[in-house]
Amino acid sequence: MTGTAILAAASYTKAITSLKGVLISIGSAIGAVMLVYGGIKFAMAFRQMDQQGEHQAVYSVVAGGVLIGLSALVNALT
């Protein structure tokens, strides 16, 4: 009976682990897209001498970096 309980618990944790992996992958992919988008936006704002656009682009780059960093940190800790 104990073996059955362990197998049932393992099947639940396998699903949660798979979901965790998918969420980490999605988070890091969104972070990469934000990083590239912010870089392009910054280059365009720099070319047009738009200081407000540069600030917004830097925020996008930082947010993308934070998402990638958090995804890597959660992946390393679990």
Rank of each mutant, 00 (worst) to 15 (best):
S28H: 04
S18F: 09
I24G: 04
T2W: 09
G53P: 04
L23A: 14
Q51E: 12
I6Q: 12
G21M: 07
E54Q: 15
E54Y: 05
S11H: 09
I30F: 10
G31W: 06
I26A: 10
Q52L: 07
F42E: 02
V22L: 14
L73T: 12
S25L: 14
S11D: 13
I68R: 02
A72D: 10
A8M: 08
Q56S: 05
G38F: 02
K20Y: 08
A29H: 06
K20Q: 04
G53S: 05
E54H: 03
T78D: 05
L7N: 12
L67Y: 08
G64D: 07
E54G: 07
D50H: 00
G39L: 04
I40H: 05
I68K: 02
G27F: 08
V58M: 11
T17M: 10
L70M: 09
L35M: 12
G38C: 00
G65Q: 01
L77K: 08
G39T: 00
F46Q: 10
A72Y: 03
A57F: 01
T17A: 11
S11I: 03
A29D: 07
N75Q: 15
G38W: 00
S60H: 06
I40V: 13
A5L: 13
S60G: 05
L35G: 02
G21L: 07
M44L: 09
G69P: 03
V66N: 04
L7W: 06
L73H: 10
M44H: 10
G21Y: 10
Y59Q: 13
Y59P: 04
V33R: 01
M44T: 13
I68T: 00
V22G: 02
L77W: 14
A76F: 13
A45R: 07
Q51S: 10
S25T: 14
M34I: 01
K41H: 05
V58T: 11
Y12N: 10
S28T: 15
A43L: 07
A29V: 11
K14P: 07
G38L: 00
L70D: 04
L35A: 06
I68N: 03
S28F: 09
I16E: 06
L77T: 12
A45P: 14
V66W: 01
E54S: 07
G31T: 08
Q48E: 14
Q52G: 05
T17V: 09
A43E: 00
M49W: 07
Q56H: 12
R47A: 13
L19E: 13
V74R: 07
N75S: 15
A45D: 08
L23S: 13
S60P: 02
Y37K: 05
